[in-house]
Amino acid sequence: MDYTWHFQIVWDYRAVFVRGAIMTAQITFWATLIGLTLGLALGLMRRSEFFLLRAPAATFIELFRSTPALVQLVWIYYSLPILTGLQLSNTTSVSIGLGLHAAAYFAEIFRAGVNSISKGQWDAARAIGMSYSKAMRRIILPQAVRRMIPPFINEFASLIKLTTLGSALAVYELLHEANNLINNTYRPLEVYTVLALAFAVIIYPIIYASQRLEQRWQLRQ
């Protein structure tokens, strides 16, 4: 293959990548915030003994886990306004859509973390007169959070990657910026290569950190 690489072009347009990266970071931030808050609530609800709390949480979680994220985004952007008259901007749609998507997964991480704490810990907490919420806050969660952090980081990394779906709604995140750049420069090979590397450089350290944490905490247990 005698292709001549012109990475200089990508460097010349570095501002475009920075702009895209900022948008990607913003979407990730909001989606994580929504995902964590809602996920915590859903995870708690799903463990509830009350059917009226448990059932909606389970329905939401399973619905979002069994449909593609891209379908969720286009539904929120195109179908929601038709049904409700509520038209969200494309960026808001992606942030909320991915937030809801992440919530379903965070809820399951949360639930699995709490369930992994032995029943004896609940017994001991109740035996000294703790209420459910006190036992959860003081005894169960401090132990469970530690087990939830590695899978949470993994989910966070996958959320960053999912922001590229925003390009389907013309959100100017990294992938969409890259596509535009290609239309101007006709250099898909360089642009996509740099794009892929940029993601790898951001995400690999996150995954690495999660693996290290997992190892360290396993050793200590």
């Binding site: 810990q121 017994d123 001991a124 907490a125 007169g129 209420s131 459910y132 132990q143």
Partner: peptide, 23 residues
């Protein structure tokens, strides 16, 4: 639940598997 909890504070319980809080 609060009254059940209040009664529990007046009894101590020791378990087969200790169930100390590991953290």
């Amino acid at each position: 639940a609060s009254r059940i909890a209040a009664i529990r504070t007046r009894m101590g319980m020791v378990f087969q598997n200790f169930n100390l809080f590991p953290h």
